Amino acid sequence: MKKILYSLLMFASVTIFAQKNPNVKFAVCNDAVGTVNLFNARKAMVQSTTPYKATALPANLKKFSYLAQNGLTEVKYKKDVGTLDWMTLSNYNTQYGLPETNPVIIEGYEFNDSTTKIYADIIDKIEVNDFNGKKTLFITTVQKYQY
């Protein structure tokens, strides 16, 4: 009986942790992943935003198609404004003592390519949890930016 309860508990925790957050809309700028909220809060830096549906992604965004369930926005910075800080997922894995090639879960979306760059400002919380039997980073994003 204990084994059955333990199995159900493990399945439930994986299911809860891996739920995709429908409120998060991802954006890509300079080949790094952020959120639409991140760039909306920094409109002075943004030259243009182009939202795409999952079925109509241009070739340069196809590699991010796994994030396009709610659409995907391409952002372009204004000239001479610099850029926000970003880091690869492999670096985050290393910081938390995990293998560099581990997948990372961001708001329920599984990022299998650890060379993917994400903007540091989207991170609200990072936790290490079990996912499919191995330790995995779970990242929660900032929902509302306060400036």
Score class of each variant (00 low, 15 high):
50 T>S: 13
22 P>R: 13
66 Y>W: 10
27 A>S: 13
108 G>C: 08
24 V>H: 02
122 I>D: 02
79 K>H: 02
52 Y>S: 06
62 K>R: 13
40 N>R: 02
131 F>Y: 15
141 T>S: 05
10 M>D: 11
18 A>G: 12
102 N>E: 01
142 V>T: 13
127 E>A: 14
15 T>P: 06
59 A>C: 00
84 L>T: 08
106 I>V: 15
67 L>Q: 07
76 K>C: 00
117 K>N: 11
107 E>I: 05
34 G>H: 04
142 V>Y: 00
125 K>G: 09
71 G>Q: 01
50 T>Y: 11
78 K>N: 08
99 P>G: 06
44 A>F: 14
134 K>Y: 07
78 K>R: 15
22 P>I: 13
12 A>R: 14
134 K>D: 07
72 L>C: 05
86 W>V: 04
140 T>E: 07
115 T>H: 10
110 E>K: 14
51 P>R: 05
30 N>P: 09
35 T>K: 00
62 K>G: 04
132 N>V: 05
44 A>G: 08
40 N>V: 06
114 S>Y: 10
34 G>K: 04
59 A>R: 00
82 G>S: 01
48 S>H: 10
121 D>F: 00
127 E>K: 15
130 D>M: 14
40 N>Q: 13
144 K>T: 06
57 L>F: 02
67 L>P: 05
54 A>P: 06
42 R>F: 13
120 A>E: 14
80 D>T: 00
135 K>A: 14
106 I>L: 07
1 M>E: 04
82 G>I: 09
104 V>D: 03
123 I>R: 01
26 F>T: 06
97 G>W: 14
25 K>D: 08
105 I>V: 15
94 T>S: 11
29 C>A: 15
122 I>F: 10
69 Q>M: 03
68 A>V: 08
108 G>L: 10
117 K>I: 02
131 F>N: 12
60 N>S: 06
110 E>W: 00
19 Q>N: 15
106 I>F: 01
63 K>Y: 07
22 P>Q: 13
78 K>T: 01
128 V>S: 06
138 F>L: 11
40 N>F: 09
90 S>A: 15
85 D>S: 13
106 I>M: 10
58 P>W: 06
102 N>P: 14
22 P>W: 13
17 F>W: 15
103 P>C: 14
5 L>E: 11
121 D>M: 11
16 I>F: 13
82 G>Q: 01
16 I>P: 00
28 V>G: 05
5 L>D: 05
50 T>A: 13
